[in-house]
Amino acid sequence: MKRKLVNCLEFGHVVSILDGIASRATVNRGLEAAGLDRSLLKGRTAFIPYAAEAVLVETVARAIGDRHLGARVGMKFQYSAYSVYASYVLSAPDLASALERGRRALYLIHPGSEILFRQTETHLVVGRDTKGLSVIGHRHLDEGALFVIAQVGHHFLGQDWVPDWYEIPASPPDSVRELEELAGTKIHANAHVPGVAIRLSDLATVNPAPLQSDVALTLESLAALMNVAPKQTMKEAVVEILQSLMDSGTPDENSVAKLLAIGPRSLQRALRAEGVSFREIRTQVTIGYARTMLAKTDVSLKDVAKKAGYSDERSFRRAFKAATGQSPSLFRASLKTGAAELSQTDQ
């Protein structure tokens, strides 16, 4: 089962934009509502659930009374936040090639999503699919995506370029009028996916300012350069969530299911189909987290157990030994002994 995820490069930039629109306390409440926190902003190259980003923006939008907050975030979004993905797209020789590059490499920033092209007699409509998404706040991300996609057009056609129209899924007439005023162009409602209309005659526009790079960017090299791998299986998605939130406490099965915008039983069935259980994944992640703490800090075993999500030190010791074959104390001692021997060898 594929889940729609968002690269933390985008997530971190969205949070910084929201911080400039609403108070930090309001954004923090939005993060809490989404089951997230600011620890995800610490230079991570990972993914969060698309549904969680949607809940964040929706919560902030409700708090400040802005039903087009997603569009405003999209208008402020800096495409360069996508790192080498942006370089790959914006170094294309022409606009048509750039759009195709963005479509092919989308899995690096939005695993589980897809860029769709629809051609009319005069225009190419570039959209991002939202199939199967009914999560709270997804409308904000739909609107924001329009302006992010349009930034590729701005690079080739100039900052004053405006699409002939945008397309959005069903929306009330008064909301459409507000969005038209904000976007400065026509809005076609009731579309299958949010999309940007680009004239066919503009697709051959030559790149006026190719982004320079010391590395020859290819689709094959991008994943390594970005130090990420797309998370497509349910197990990988669960591991990503647990690892991302370990610093603020290990979420339970119900919380993880909520972040994935599915029910607990659906999560259980998906994991069972992949031959693993939530409990097994959680143990794998918590023991890995504990190993890192034992190796790199002098935190007491009691505190390591607590941070790893165990109710008491005894339960932690039992689980750690079952997983590693060593007690936590012996594991830490063996690391110190090995480090000391290596130091003596280097002298």
Rank of each mutant, 00 (worst) to 15 (best):
W165Q: 13
R332K: 15
L179Y: 08
T283M: 13
D129L: 03
S39W: 10
V126D: 08
D298M: 07
T297C: 15
D94W: 01
A197M: 12
T324S: 00
R128G: 10
E121L: 03
G325D: 07
W161I: 06
E180D: 06
R62F: 01
D312H: 13
N254D: 15
D164K: 12
I198D: 04
F11P: 05
A81E: 00
D19R: 10
D247P: 04
R103N: 05
F331M: 13
S255F: 02
I287M: 07
A323E: 13
V238W: 04
V89F: 00
A25F: 07
G137C: 08
K306W: 14
A295E: 15
L267E: 10
R314G: 08
V135E: 11
S334F: 07
S80H: 02
A33D: 10
G74F: 01
A273T: 11
L259H: 00
A333R: 14
A52M: 07
L301W: 01
A290E: 09
E280Q: 14
S300I: 06
I262D: 05
P328S: 08
S201C: 01
S315M: 14
S16V: 07
L222Q: 09
L222M: 09
S16I: 04
T185I: 14
F117T: 00
D94V: 01
S83M: 01
I281A: 13
E143R: 15
L182N: 14
K258D: 10
I241C: 01
V57M: 09
G35A: 03
G70S: 02
S80N: 01
F320D: 05
T337H: 02
A63Q: 05
P163G: 13
H154Q: 11
N227T: 10
E341K: 11
D298F: 09
G309D: 10
L124E: 09
I187C: 10
N254A: 09
A273G: 10
H123T: 08
A98V: 06
Q78V: 04
T283H: 07
A25N: 11
T122V: 01
S248Y: 00
T292N: 14
S277T: 15
L301N: 12
P208N: 06
G309Y: 11
V228Y: 07
K4E: 04
A257Q: 04
E313S: 14
L31P: 03
Y107D: 10
L146S: 14
G263C: 02
A261P: 04
S80E: 08
D214K: 09
K336E: 12
L157Y: 11
G112Q: 02
T286F: 09
Y107C: 04
F47D: 12
L242A: 08
I281S: 15
S80L: 01
G30Y: 06
M1K: 02
A46I: 06
R317A: 14
V228T: 15
E10C: 08
I241R: 00
I17F: 07
I136N: 03
S266E: 15
L69H: 01
R177Y: 05
L124T: 10
Y166D: 06
